[in-house]
Nucleic acid binder design. Sequence first.
DNA 1: GCCAACGTTGGC
DNA 2: GCCAACGTTGGC
Length: 150
Amino acid sequence: MAYWLMKSEPEEVSIDDLAAQKSLPWFGVRNYQARNFMRDAMQVGDRAFFYHSSCAEPGIAGICEVCAPAHPDGTQFDPASPYFDAKATQENQRWQCVDVQFVQKTRLLGLAELRMQPALAGMQILQRGNRLSITSVSDAEWKFITEQLL
DNA sequence: GCCAACGTTGGC
DNA sequence: GCCAACGTTGGC
């Protein structure tokens, strides 16, 4: 069982959207490293912080859980989708995603507040230039955030 | 809207 | 396989 942090733009999919839908595919990832995490490392039952990015209040907004293993991301084949990938074919599909289900909404734990914690100084999301939309979270970081901050 | 940082592309 | 140019991310 591993822990993750998954970024989503709340204008597209927020923690409230996930709560309303119960579960949904984590579609739209177009970065190989993040895809590889979903395809190779994430397992059903893993938990993740649901992080709101590119918005007025970026930060952790809730918790979700992987509920289905990686499967093809259908948006790569949909010409109407912003995530359409003209180079993806049924034989050579490029993008996969896991499904996640809602666990809980939390208070908004903002970026600045995360940065204030010495215990979290090594967190991937806080590293300079970090852009990866899925990062792993250590057991210690998960414990600290869930038990001390939320 | 700015811009630093990073990933991807494509010519060579 | 190098690397410059370009595109994207994401906080501010």
